[in-house]
Simulated scan of single mutants.
Amino acid sequence: MERNYSGLKFFSLLWGILYVAAGLIQVGKGVGLLSASFLSSSLLPAELAGGLVLVVIGAVFFVATFEFSNNSFEGTAYAYVGILLCLVFATLYFLSMIADLINAYILSMEGYEKWTIVDSFKPTLYLGILSAVVYAVGKNRFRPISQGGF
C-alpha cells in the first residue's frame, strides 16, 4: 500500500534546515567564528550549548527526511520525535524565561536591572512555539496511516 508522506516530508526538511541554520549561527557566534553583530544578537545570541541542541534537533528532522525519501514508515517516528524535542526544549527555555522574569521584577535580583523579556527569547523558544502551531494546524495532514490500520 502506497503512503503519501509529502506533507510531513516537507515539514521535516524545512524544520531541519531552520534548526540546523539557527544552531550553526549560534555555535559560530559562540566560538567566535561569526561576529557578535552577525544578524540580530537578541534573537540569535552567541550560545554554544543552545546552538548544539538546535543542530541535534535539526539532524533528527534530516534523518526523518532521509527515511521518507527511502519510502520508509520510520520517517514518521523521527519527525514526531523531532517535534517532541522541539516542544520539550521550548518548554525548558520558557521556564528559564519565567525564572528570569521572577528574578528581574519580583525579586529585583542584582544583575537583572536592565533585563527585558527579549533577552530570554531564544531560537529554541520561538522555533518550538512555531513547531507547536504548525503541528496543531496541520496535524491531520501529518497522519499517513488510514484509520483502518497499517
Rank of each mutant, 00 (worst) to 15 (best):
60 V>G: 13
91 T>W: 15
95 L>S: 10
31 V>W: 04
104 A>N: 03
107 L>C: 02
90 A>P: 02
23 G>I: 11
116 T>R: 13
21 A>I: 08
57 I>E: 03
108 S>M: 08
53 V>S: 12
91 T>G: 15
6 S>K: 10
78 Y>H: 12
68 F>I: 06
8 L>I: 09
65 T>E: 09
107 L>N: 13
6 S>I: 07
58 G>P: 00
4 N>T: 03
103 N>G: 15
59 A>Y: 02
58 G>R: 01
36 A>Q: 09
37 S>V: 05
51 G>P: 02
26 Q>H: 02
24 L>A: 07
13 L>H: 08
6 S>P: 08
56 V>D: 09
73 F>H: 13
99 A>G: 15
19 Y>H: 10
48 L>C: 01
110 E>D: 14
45 P>Y: 01
46 A>T: 02
97 M>Q: 12
78 Y>Q: 10
79 A>S: 11
53 V>Y: 10
108 S>T: 12
106 I>C: 07
53 V>P: 03
50 G>I: 01
7 G>M: 04
48 L>E: 05
27 V>R: 02
102 I>A: 15
18 L>D: 00
32 G>D: 04
60 V>H: 10
52 L>F: 08
64 A>K: 06
51 G>M: 00
47 E>K: 11
9 K>Y: 12
46 A>Q: 01
11 F>A: 14
55 V>M: 01
98 I>N: 11
109 M>H: 10
84 L>D: 01
111 G>Q: 08
26 Q>A: 04
59 A>L: 04
59 A>H: 00
64 A>C: 02
66 F>Q: 07
100 D>Y: 09
32 G>M: 04
63 V>G: 13
74 E>H: 11
115 W>I: 06
101 L>Y: 14
34 L>V: 05
79 A>H: 11
67 E>I: 09
39 L>C: 06
86 C>N: 13
80 Y>G: 14
